[in-house]
Computed example of a mutant assay.
Amino acid sequence: MGSSDDDPVVASYDVFLTDSEISRFVFQYLDRDEEFPYNDRNNQRPTQLRMKARTGIVEVDVPINTRGNYDVNKGLRYGEAMKKSRSSRDGGAYGMSGGFTAGGAAANSGGRVKMEGNGDVEILDNKRAVDSASLMRTQSLGGRVKPAEEGDPVYMLATFKNKNLHLSPVSSVVQFHPQLHHLDALDEMPKAKGRKRDDDDRPAESEARAIDIKVKGAEDGETNMVGGNLDLLKKMQEEKWKSYGWIDAETEDAWYTYESFMMHQEPETLPSMETNINSEDYLDKMSAPRIDPARPDLTGWAMKENRRRQRDGASQNENEQ
């Protein structure tokens, strides 16, 4: 065994655990390069975050760069569909589960360029002026908060402040994927054709129809699973979105939140944690079972008990002498 000089201690920190009742989520954008985060610096700060807390659905709206690699014709087509969509206008349903809509103007949120005498227009690289209100300018990314189960890993967020290390438990890791709400809106458009319109700008309402899903030839276990999924989809549809604003990471408000919820302000007032396991038991739980060379049949707990009896016997003999 080498000396301690071969493996010197270069630093030591006091470790503190922050409030575990605060919800902290880690968002992972699977198709986004880590060098280009969604923030103000890249002109892609999310415009809105919305969540269905009971069913765990989360969506984020992020701006689309309309000045490069952007198909204006499709942008107008999808944007117009989103603007006229019954779901977008009245908070209806998108997708299989229903309720996957931002509702109202959120689907078309995004800045406009105000030009004198021309109204709200956008001038693109090809010098074509288009109506900004009809242009698809945001993309929705969606994910789901996975309910914690026994045996799941526990992730912590670490924050250093001087010689203190603050650990904050993560409520959930959410992986985001692009949502295709614009295709759902476009698919909804033909249903309004040929129907009576209230006015020139408002398409007729699509009729709400119940969907009857039948499952045939499923085993009992599969039936229960399908039934559970249908129940979850129903709950997703019924639950209302709750919207939140988005604060850029480099703003003063973000740093204030970071200071308030990621570290203790008065760590000296916190009680010290006490372990309920000794060093030997800890090593046994972290290592492979130990085997007594003198008694190969004894391992783990039995080996420790045998050694304890030997130590107790040796101590008793010394006292008698």
Rank of each mutant, 00 (worst) to 15 (best):
G2K: 07
D7K: 01
P8L: 01
V10L: 14
L17V: 10
L17M: 12
D19R: 12
S23E: 15
R24S: 05
V26C: 12
D31W: 13
R32F: 02
D33T: 03
E34N: 05
E35G: 05
F36T: 14
Y38K: 02
Y38P: 05
D40R: 11
R41N: 06
N42P: 01
N43H: 13
R45W: 01
P46R: 10
T47R: 13
Q48S: 10
R50M: 15
R50I: 09
R54W: 01
R54A: 10
I57P: 02
V58A: 02
V60P: 00
D61K: 04
D61P: 00
D61N: 07
P63E: 02
I64N: 01
I64H: 02
R67I: 00
R67N: 04
Y70T: 00
G75C: 03
M82K: 03
K84D: 07
S88R: 00
G91E: 01
G91I: 04
G92K: 08
M96V: 15
M96Y: 10
G98R: 08
F100P: 00
G103C: 04
G104A: 03
G110L: 07
E116V: 14
E116Q: 10
D120Q: 08
D120V: 07
V121Q: 10
E122T: 14
D131I: 09
A133E: 12
S134K: 12
L135N: 03
R137L: 02
L141C: 07
L141K: 07
G142E: 09
G143M: 06
V145C: 09
K146G: 02
E149C: 06
E149K: 14
P153R: 02
P153C: 03
P153Q: 03
V154E: 13
T159L: 12
N162C: 03
H166G: 05
H166S: 10
L167D: 03
S171G: 10
S172A: 15
H182Y: 12
D184Q: 05
A185T: 10
D187C: 05
K191C: 04
K196E: 11
D199W: 04
P203F: 02
E205A: 13
S206N: 14
K214D: 05
K216W: 04
D220G: 00
E222W: 02
N224L: 15
L233A: 11
Q237Y: 05
E238C: 01
K240C: 03
W241H: 05
S243V: 12
S243F: 15
Y244E: 04
E250Y: 11
A254N: 01
W255M: 12
W255A: 10
E259A: 15
F261D: 08
M262N: 12
E274F: 10
E274Q: 11
T275W: 09
T275Q: 06
D281N: 12
Y282S: 06
Y282P: 00
M286S: 06
A288V: 12
I291Q: 14
D292Y: 13
R295H: 15
T299I: 10
R309L: 14
A314T: 07
